[in-house]
Design a protein around this nucleic acid. Sequence first.
DNA 1: CTATAATTTCGACAGATTTCGAATCAAGGA
DNA 2: TCCTTGATTCGAAATCTGTCGAAATTATAG
Lengths: 115, 115
Amino acid sequence: MTAVTSQCCAPIAREPLSESDAAELAVMLKAVADPVRLRLLSMIGSHAGGEACVCDLTDAFDLTAPTISHHLKVLRTAGLIDGERRGTWVYYRILPEAVNKLGTLFTPLSESVSA
Amino acid sequence: MTAVTSQCCAPIAREPLSESDAAELAVMLKAVADPVRLRLLSMIGSHAGGEACVCDLTDAFDLTAPTISHHLKVLRTAGLIDGERRGTWVYYRILPEAVNKLGTLFTPLSESVSA
DNA sequence: CTATAATTTCGACAGATTTCGAATCAAGGA
DNA sequence: TCCTTGATTCGAAATCTGTCGAAATTATAG
């Protein structure tokens, strides 16, 4: 790594993505490119203690439990969240590194625009 | 000048997204959640002059011109790029505001508002 | 050990997405 | 004008995705 090409803009606009990098990033972005999963991620991250029980999440949607479970699996497979069973309930929390990775992709390095 | 909720993390993890915000963001994210479109965006952004001709883009893929045209339309419809015809060729360029919008969603705000 | 509650897995289906080939539109040059 | 090149639109095939109901799994309660 370590290649400050031109400092002009977001990494995605600084140099062409390789085919494999694009494929890898697309998996993560696909996981987030759904209204339900976006809300799930948001609800998990903003929940008290940084984690949320599946039961809380399911109640917030007009969707069945299997559907919510499916979406959580997509997010987990993409490395965006992690789940842990404690007793009867399963708790999910955000993996901040993964979210940051998406952020840096689209954020200009040098920042400080306007003020 | 209001609503500094908790300063803890990325906007997506700070408070639950509304249903309509999630739907709107998902449209933009879906546009980017594809390996071909990710590379197109990257190639356009990093091309000399900040813009790229469709002919350059088409040659870089093992895909037909109609397919590339379709992907460019998806990106344009999502507001991520803009295209202009100059003579025989059509040139596309990135709309940085849209890319920034995605970036801030996932980036923790380390800077404070008017501090 | 059985009953009950919380999640996940399985199997299926409607709708969306990706891709192509053929046809069409736009701009220049013979 | 007619023809060539670049780009988009149109229609269709193959694949992927979101959703559900039913069944299986895991843990607690009695």
